[in-house]
Design a protein around this nucleic acid. Structure first.
Length: 645
DNA sequence: GACGTTTCAACGGT
DNA sequence: CACCGTTGAAACGT
């Protein structure tokens, strides 16, 4: 293991050694080490990882880094609300005040616990990126928690049927929402292409205020009288809209949605608003409801951008009555959103349609799903040589652990498996929701292992059952190779584990830097930026146990080298504002426990967005030089960039 | 203001 | 999976 690897995944200087870059062939011959099982069943000559004695301290400080400095936000209230303030503004203000004193909750016992709103009251009317992010994170954390309770059916006061609505209701009644003031055009803090998984999620950030309605509108003072203008529409397949061309949308008016014999639609409400918008020529936000490729029975809502209504007409609907039709044209100069989604659909049908494709599957079948290799930037033909291997390789030099006892479940373990001993190790709550989304970060997650008889339908094996999203390794503009996804990813989704060779630190040189850089090395002993991801128990109505502690809790440092052997994780770049985080997971293999590093989505990630995590900062060991010799200049570009990592 | 109406949800069952 | 029934809650309008 000599030699510097290239700068993959590392915004290092341009110490890129082209001579080591291999062309296509070696990569193609990256044969998985395991003949059959992608999971590497019993073949890994895998002496165990060291024991995990208790009695150690958390290995990084929990500094609170709450956003005191507002990101310089260039909010673009395209046509600011001077005209668009609803006449009901007074009502709103009043409602705000009510919310402020939260009368509905003050009476409930144990619910008067204070929680931090986290932003100003003004920011509830007009948001910005930071507040939007804050609200979205808190919404989904709460939603996941309610979902967990729903799955387990352990909610003591009435069952939760709709975790999304429940979470939305709690946040709205507490005033944890933003962009309440309706506006025409862009919404501050929400970018084109952002994705949402529930309609109520659009409401809490102010992108579309109707919980179900497809047309949102606002009252404005017109030339002579009040008129209503459409501000946003959701095109979701409920009616037969036409969405063939990427920049044209034929949208059906509202009325008679579910009726078998629909009467004629009337020119009122949303229909009237769209009609007025046609004459006034105002911008209308368009949100497209798409089928989720990862779980096809759910929907993804994509903020496609601003449109203008070009024309309208009436036609006979299928169920008898006549319906309104509106033709909307996408404004030029906006990033392609819907068009990109359409392209990805085509790439999936024929991989060769992907521009810049070098390899259809750089894993050579080692993963459950292909991972394409793409370069649209220059003529480099691929990353430096390495051997693709989908999981960890433990070297021989580790001591044996004490014997491991798996569960004895003979049905698939899942959210209701309170008797499963593996589940019990997680502290009572099943760590994942029914659709395999991680509920909370934890010091350690216990999954079922090889000798547990519950295989293969067990739901407690999320991080060991292969890739779930369609990934792609691509050439970035200035940071070597990177990782991104063709599929939209919802927060809490498992992305991949960090595969590679486990390094025995006692064997490793103490000197650290003998020309060896830390490219393609994962090290739990780095100092990581802390962040809050879990739900806030104080937002739950009834007394709720505290959220799991989000500090990692690893007895001895785990160092994984992916220089020579690794998987897709080795291509993930660093960011100081990452969208992915790592989570220790432990499960059994040949009667011994092994620690793994699993990556989960921190937030919803739109397709073709680079996946990044915090590499952390190597600890400078006391006496050694104070210069940050092992550190690299960071090119993540985030406003919160620390400058190096 | 309270209440009824409207609404391109979300789920689970078949 | 496609349809279908059930449950559901914010905003709007009366």
């Amino acid at each position: 293991m000599e030699g510097s690897s290239d700068g993959n995944g590392v915004p290092s200087s341009n110490s890129f050694d082209k001579s080591r870059v291999l062309d296509v062939k070696p990569l193609r011959s990256l044969v998985p080490m395991l003949p059959d099982m992608p999971q590497g069943q019993s073949f890994i000559c895998a002496p165990p990882f060291g024991p995990f004695p208790s009695g150690f301290s958390p290995f990084f400080p929990f500094s609170v880094q709450q956003g005191s400095q507002c990101a310089p936000e260039t909010a673009t209230p395209i046509r600011s609300s001077s005209t668009a303030v609803p006449h009901s503004a007074k009502k709103r203000v009043k409602r705000n005040r009510n919310v402020h004193s939260s009368p509905g909750f003050a009476s409930g016992k144990g619910s008067t616990k204070d929680f931090k709103l986290g932003f100003s009251f003004a920011e509830r009317d007009d948001g910005n990126k930071e507040v939007v992010e804050n609200v979205r994170m808190r919404f989904d954390a709460l939603r996941r928690r309610f979902s967990q309770l729903e799955d387990a059916k352990e909610s003591s006061s009435g069952i939760i049927r709709r975790a999304d609505l429940k979470a939305g209701n709690v946040l709205m009644s507490k005033g944890v929402r933003t962009n309440m003031k309706k506006r025409i055009g862009s919404v501050p803090g929400i970018e084109f292409g952002e994705i949402f998984f529930f309609r109520i999620e659009l409401c809490v950030v102010g992108l579309h205020a109707q919980t179900m309605g497809g047309i949102d509108y606002v009252n404005v003072r017109g030339d002579l009288e009040q008129e209503t203008l459409a501000v946003s529409i959701v095109s979701s397949g409920g009616y037969d809209d036409e969405a063939e061309e990427a920049n044209v949308l034929i949208y059906s008016g509202q009325g008679g949605f579910k009726d078998k014999e629909a009467p004629d639609q009337k020119l009122e409400r949303g229909n009237l608003a769209l009609e007025t918008s046609l004459h006034r020529g105002n911008e209308v936000r368009v949100i497209r409801g798409m089928k989720d490729a990862v779980s096809p029975k759910t929907k993804v809502y994509v903020y496609d951008g601003l449109y203008k209504t070009e024309s309208s007409w009436m036609e006979k609907g299928k169920s008898g009555g006549s319906i309104f039709k509106y033709k909307l044209l996408r404004l030029p100069g906006q990033p392609d959103v819907f068009a990109l989604w359409k392209s990805i659909e085509k790439w999936k049908e024929g991989l060769s349609l992907r521009p810049g494709l070098i390899l259809p599957d750089l894993t050579s079948g080692a993963e459950s799903m292909p991972v394409s290799l793409v370069n649209e930037i220059d003529d480099e033909k691929g990353p430096a040589y390495f051997t693709y291997f989908p999981t960890l390789k433990y070297s021989k030099s580790f001591k044996l652990l004490q014997p491991f006892f798996g569960c004895n479940c003979h049905t698939a373990c899942g959210p209701g498996s309170t008797n499963c001993s593996c589940v019990q190790k997680n502290g009572g709550d099943f760590p994942y929701t029914a659709n395999a989304v991680l509920v909370s970060r934890k010091s350690l997650i216990h999954e079922c292992g090889l000798s547990c008889p519950c295989f293969p339908n067990c739901k407690n094996r999320v991080s060991q059952t292969g890739l779930k999203v369609r990934l792609e390794v691509f050439k970035t503009r200035d940071r070597g190779w990177g990782l991104q996804s063709w599929d939209p990813i919802r927060a809490g989704t498992f992305i991949c584990e960090y595969a590679g060779e486990v390094i025995d630190k006692s064997n490793t040189r103490q000197d650290g830097e003998d020309g060896d850089n830390n490219d393609h090395v994962f090290d739990t002993s780095h100092t990581y930026q802390s962040f809050r991801w879990n739900f806030e128990p104080e937002l739950m109505e009834e007394e709720s146990p505290p959220a799991p502690i989000e500090e990692y809790d690893i007895s001895s440092p785990l160092i994984i080298s992916a220089k020579n052997i690794g998987n897709v994780a080795r291509f993930m770049n660093h960011s100081c504002s990452p969208n992915v985080f790592w989570q220790p997971v432990i499960y059994e293999h040949n009667n011994e426990s092994f620690l793994h590093i699993a990556f989960f989505a921190m937030r919803h990630i739109p397709p073709m967005t680079e996946l990044t995590y915090d590499y952390g900062i190597a600890r400078t060991d006391g006496e050694s030089s104070s210069a940050p010799s092992g550190r690299k200049k960071c090119l993540c570009g985030s406003p919160k960039c620390r400058g190096y990592f």
